[in-house]
Computed example of a mutant assay.
Amino acid sequence: MKSPHRLMQGMAVAAVVTATTLSAPIVAAAHEAQPGSGTYQECRGVTVDKNAPVVSRASVLIKAPLTTVWALHTDIDAWGSWIPEITPARKKTPGPLRPGSVFEWSPQNMKVTSTVTAVERGRCTAWAAPVNGIDGVHLFTFKQVRGGVLATTEESWAGTPVEADIPGSQAALDAGLNDWVHRLKTTAETKPGCADH
């Protein structure tokens, strides 16, 4: 069985985060949302677990159309083209992403089955991602702002493996969320037709 810290890294897609990945300016730093702070993202009433021992958030300004960002985010079968560490990633439920949709993905060779709990087209998604004793709740929100799209991801972790190493879990989740939004930014901004947005 993987160590709790290795497991955390996998769940958060916390492969080695290079200086290049994190060179873009971040709008709201990871680790901003804290248990008990009362400041959380929501998607149709769904939020992260506010009582979880580990909660993290990362936001970035993406200079690309909202339609491009949303398409990249919701095309789960193509995630591997810009986040290869989570392959294979496959949507198991046919049709558009909606509450009840199920998808499988494999961060660091672990098989994770997630269920979408909320979707608002062009604005937000939320899903539950339980794996190996960790209960994860993951939200993404998107807001059109001057200069592009503010993309925010927020996630909570609870469970025995998390409680065994809260600082390590927090660091892994912070790194993973930062990596994810910056990869989304880089991919969206390099799509054809986005350079002059």
Rank of each mutant, 00 (worst) to 15 (best):
S56M: 10
A175I: 03
L61N: 04
D75S: 15
Q108F: 13
G176M: 07
G147P: 09
E104M: 09
V116C: 09
W127F: 14
T93Y: 06
R98P: 09
L173V: 08
M110V: 05
N132Y: 00
A128K: 12
S59V: 03
D49H: 01
E104Q: 12
P96R: 14
G80L: 05
K143Y: 02
F140V: 11
D165T: 07
G95Y: 10
V116Y: 02
R90K: 15
D135T: 09
S59H: 04
T153N: 11
R90G: 03
V162A: 05
D174M: 02
F142E: 08
A89Q: 12
K50T: 13
S114A: 12
L66K: 15
A71G: 09
D75Q: 12
L72V: 08
E120N: 15
T67F: 06
R123V: 02
T93D: 04
I134M: 04
A172Y: 04
W79I: 01
S81W: 00
S101D: 06
Q108G: 11
D49C: 00
A89C: 10
P96I: 14
F103M: 10
R121C: 06
S59G: 00
L173N: 12
G148W: 04
A151D: 01
G148Y: 05
S81I: 10
A64S: 04
H138C: 02
I86M: 15
A151W: 02
A171K: 13
S169P: 08
E120R: 11
E120V: 10
L61A: 01
A78K: 15
N178R: 15
A118W: 00
T152G: 00
I83R: 10
L173W: 01
G147E: 08
T67I: 05
A171M: 10
L177R: 04
P53A: 02
K50E: 13
A89D: 07
F142D: 11
I83Q: 13
G95C: 13
I166R: 10
N109V: 03
T93A: 11
A126Y: 00
A71L: 01
P130W: 00
K143T: 11
V69A: 11
P94S: 08
A64W: 04
N109S: 14
A52R: 01
S81E: 13
A151C: 09
R57S: 04
V112G: 03
K91A: 15
W127V: 02
G147C: 11
T87G: 05
V112L: 12
R146Q: 11
S156F: 06
S59L: 03
V55R: 04
G95T: 14
R123Y: 13
Q108A: 13
H73Y: 14
A126T: 09
Q144N: 14
W70G: 03
G133N: 08
R57T: 11
Q108L: 14
R98K: 15
L139R: 03
G133E: 01
A172Q: 06
A64T: 08
S101L: 13
T113M: 10
W157D: 06
T115M: 02
P161Q: 09
L177P: 06
P99N: 13
T153H: 06
A164Y: 05
D135Y: 07
V69L: 07
V55N: 05
A128Q: 14
W157N: 01
V162I: 11
L177V: 07
M110Q: 10
N178T: 12
T113F: 01
T87N: 07
N51W: 00
K50F: 00
D77H: 05
Q170A: 15
P53D: 05
K92R: 14
N109W: 08
V55Q: 07
G168P: 04
Q170W: 00
